[in-house]
Design a protein around this nucleic acid. Structure first.
Lengths: 333, 333
DNA sequence: TTGAAAGCGCTAACAT
DNA sequence: ATGTTAGCGCTTTCAA
C-alpha cells in the first residue's frame, strides 16, 4: 500500500492548494467554489485517489473505528450481536474491528484496540466472576484516554456504559411459567461456575423454584456450548436412570447447550418433551428449524448489539440500557 | 482518544531521544543499551504509554490490518470462515476489519478497507455471475496500490489469490453417492440464479444425474437461507402432492437451506428420510444437534478462512488453494 | 550507540 | 474564498 495517490498529487493536478483539495474531498464545513470543486473531484477521479484513513485519523485525532470483543464469532449468540453492531456501526459510518478471544485473553484484544485508537470498545464476551485486574486497568486507561466502553450482559465496568441483560429475571420467568404449567422436577444444566451469565440464570431458576416450594433435582456445570449441553446429559444419565429422570425439565443455561442436551437425549433414546423436557435462553436464530421447537427466553440479540453500538457512540443516550427476556413457548417444555 | 501519552513524553521522561525510545519500544533491528532500554520501558510503563497504531501505520506505510467482507456474519457459513480468518490473523499479528454487506454493496466495504490501507482483503461474500464493474475496478486499483486480495469460493479476480471450493465436484459426488444408493428421483432447491456457488452445485447435481441417465424432477430458486429452504418446500408442495413426491431426494444448495426445507417438510407432516430425503452442502457447525442428521458435503470452513488469511499474507504460498468436499452420510438421505 | 530531523498523508488554524 | 503552514505521533535515514 505504498503506491497510492496522495492528496497533494491531486491538488497539484487540479492546480489548487492542499487545503482546498482537502476541503473538497472531505466533509469540510467550508465549501470551495463549484468550479474549483469540480476540477479537484475530476483530478481525484482520474488519478484514482483514495483517502488515507490513517493519516486522517492522525490529523483529526479520531479514527472512526469501533472494536468488538467476542468470545467465539461462530457462536450464534455472538454472531447475532456482531450483526447488530455491524449494522449500527455502518449507519454511523464506523468500521468494525473484530477480536475473537476464544478463551484467550481479552487483554490482548483490548490492547490492540487501544493501540488502534478505536473510538469505542464493545465488550460482548461472557463476563467471569473473577476479572483479570490487568484487563480492568487496561480498560480504565483506555477510558481515561477518551475511549468509550460498553459492556454487554452486565454493567461491570466503572465509567463504562452497558446493555444489561436480565438473566436472573429470565431464569425466574421461565421456571415460573413451567411451574404454573404443572412441572415440579427441574435440573439446571449450567456453564462454568465462574460465568456470570450462567450464574444469574441459575439464580433466577432457583428463586422461582423456591417461591414454588420446590427443590432443584440437580445442578450441573459444563462448557457453555453445544458440547457442554451434550456432555451434561451424558453425565446426568450416568448418575441417574432414565426412569428416575422421567418428567424432569432440564433448564440449560443457553440455547446451544439446550440443543446439545436434546441431541444427547435423542441419542440415548429419550424423547423430548415426552420423557424429559428441555428449555434454554437466548432464542438464537433459526431455532424454527429444530424439532422439537425449543422453549426459551428470547433476548433480541441483534438489537442488543445495535443498542451497544448506539449508546457507546452517542452522547445523549442513557448510560445503561436494560433488556428483558420474553418467554417463547415451543414444544420442548 | 486525545489524552493519550505520546512517545516523546516517554522519551522526555526517560531522558532519551525520540528515536531511542522508538527503538526500545518497538521491534527495531537496533537494540539500545540495556540500561537505557530499561529506563525507557519503565517510563513507558509508569506513564501508561500505548503506541498509536495510526501513526505507526503512517510512518511505516503498513497497517497490520486485514479486511474481511462477508455477506451475513450471523450465517454459520460466514461466521465459521470468519473464525478461521480471525485465528490466522492473530497468529500473524494482524487485526481484523469486518464488513457485512447484507446484500448491500461490497463496493462500500472495499472502499473503506482501501481507505484504511488494509494489507489485504478477503472476499468471502457469495459471488454473483454479474459482478459490479465498479467493484472490480475498485479491487483492481486496490491491488495496483499494493493491496492483496484473496477470494473465497471461486478464483474470479485477476491478480488476486483464491481459495476455491469445488462446488461442482461436490454436487456431483453427493448425487452420485445417492444414486448408487438406489435413489432415482431428485429435485434441486437452489439459491438465486445468479449466485455462482448455487449454480456450480447445481451443475454437479445435473451432471451426476445425466451420467446415471436420470432427469431432475424439478429445480427451484429461492433465497440462499433457511427461509429460502423453507419456502422452497412450501412452493414445491403447492405444485405437487406429497404422494407424487414420495421417495424424492431434495438436494438443497447449502445446509441452512436444507435445514429450512426439513422444517417445512416436518410442518407439512412429511417425514425425512421416510417420505422424502434431504441433503445439503457445507457441514456447518453443530449439525449433530439436528434430527435427522443431515447428509451433506463437508467443506472445512474454518480451515478455508484460515487458508485465505494465510495465502493472502504470505509470499511463498501458491496463488490458489483448492478445497474438495467430503461426503458426510447421515440419516437425512 | 544515540540523536537530529525529514518525512508519512492529512487537517485545521491562521493568513491573505 | 483560497492558500500557508504547523502539527498529528511515529519511523528511519543520516550525522555525530
Amino acid at each position: 500500500m505504498s503506491r497510492a495517490v496522495t492528496l497533494s498529487q491531486v491538488a497539484a493536478a487540479a492546480g489548487v492548494s492542499l487545503a482546498t483539495a482537502s476541503r473538497v474531498l472531505n466533509d469540510s464545513a467550508r465549501k470551495p467554489a463549484p468550479a474549483i470543486a469540480e476540477r479537484v473531484r475530476e483530478a481525484a477521479e482520474t488519478l484514482g485517489y483514495v483517502a488515507n484513513a490513517q493519516a486522517q485519523a492522525l490529523a483529526r485525532s479520531t479514527t472512526g473505528l469501533i472494536g468488538l470483543v467476542v468470545h467465539d464469532i461462530s457462536d450464534p449468540y455472538f454472531s447475532s450481536i456482531a450483526k447488530g453492531v455491524q449494522h449500527r456501526a455502518r449507519e454511523d459510518r464506523h468500521q468494525l474491528l473484530l477480536a475473537a478471544t476464544n478463551g484467550g485473553d481479552q487483554l490482548d484484544a483490548v490492547s490492540a484496540f487501544a493501540s488502534h485508537r478505536t473510538a469505542a470498545i464493545i465488550m460482548a464476551g461472557s463476563r467471569r466472576t473473577e476479572i483479570d485486574p490487568r484487563l480492568l486497568s487496561e480498560l480504565e486507561r483506555y477510558q481515561r484516554n477518551g475511549g468509550r466502553v460498553v459492556t454487554i450482559g452486565q454493567d461491570w465496568l466503572d465509567g463504562a456504559r452497558a446493555v444489561t441483560i436480565d438473566n436472573r429475571g429470565a431464569g425466574h420467568q421461565l421456571v415460573r411459567a413451567l411451574v404454573e404449567d404443572g412441572q415440579t422436577r427441574f435440573a439446571f444444566l449450567g456453564g462454568p461456575d465462574d460465568l456470570v451469565t450462567s450464574l444469574e440464570r441459575r439464580a433466577g431458576f432457583r428463586s422461582a423454584l423456591a417461591e414454588a416450594g420446590l427443590e432443584p433435582e440437580l445442578e450441573m456445570e459444563h462448557a457453555f456450548t453445544s458440547e457442554g449441553g451434550y456432555e451434561s446429559v451424558r453425565d446426568l444419565l450416568s448418575r441417574t436412570s432414565a426412569e428416575d429422570l422421567a418428567g424432569t425439565t432440564l433448564v440449560a443455561a443457553n440455547d446451544v447447550m439446550a440443543l446439545g442436551a436434546i441431541a444427547a437425549l435423542r441419542h440415548a433414546g429419550l424423547r423430548v418433551p415426552d420423557d424429559l423436557r428441555v428449555a434454554g435462553f437466548d432464542d438464537i436464530p433459526n431455532l424454527r428449524d429444530f424439532a422439537p421447537g425449543l422453549t426459551t427466553i428470547r433476548f433480541p440479540l441483534e438489537d442488543v448489539g445495535a443498542a451497544a453500538a448506539r449508546i457507546v457512540l452517542a452522547d445523549d443516550e442513557p448510560r445503561v440500557e436494560s433488556v428483558a427476556g420474553e418467554l417463547v413457548r415451543r414444544e420442548s417444555a
